[in-house]
C-alpha cells in the first residue's frame, strides 16, 4: 500500500470524527484504526510516522501516534 493511499485512508477516518461531538476525537480515530486495521497496516503507519508522517492531517497524526505507541 502506497503511503499516499494509507494517509488518505487515515485522513478520511479523521475527517469523519472531526465532525463528531466526542470529548477526545483522536481517541475515536485511534479506536477505529485499532478496530479495523490489521497489524501490518498499523506497522506501516508507525513507520510512516517515524519518517515524519507526511500528508497526515493533524487529527490523523495525533491518532496515529496513540495507536502505534
Amino acid at each position: 500500500m502506497s503511503p499516499e493511499k494509507m494517509t488518505r485512508m487515515a485522513n478520511q477516518i479523521a475527517t469523519f470524527f472531526e465532525s463528531q461531538p466526542v470529548s477526545d476525537q483522536a481517541e475515536s480515530v485511534a479506536a477505529h484504526l485499532k478496530e479495523f486495521w490489521e497489524p501490518r497496516m498499523l506497522e506501516k503507519l508507525a513507520k510512516h510516522l517515524q519518517s515524519g508522517g507526511e500528508g497526515l492531517s493533524p487529527l490523523a497524526l495525533e491518532a496515529s501516534k496513540r495507536v502505534t505507541a
Partner: peptide, 18 residues
C-alpha cells in the same frame, strides 16, 4: 485477537509481498 486484512488490504499486502 487482532483484526485481519480486508479484501483491498489483502491485495495491497500481496503487492507489498507479505
Amino acid at each position: 485477537p487482532e483484526p485481519g486484512l480486508r479484501i483491498p488490504n489483502m491485495l495491497d499486502a500481496a503487492v507489498d509481498g507479505t
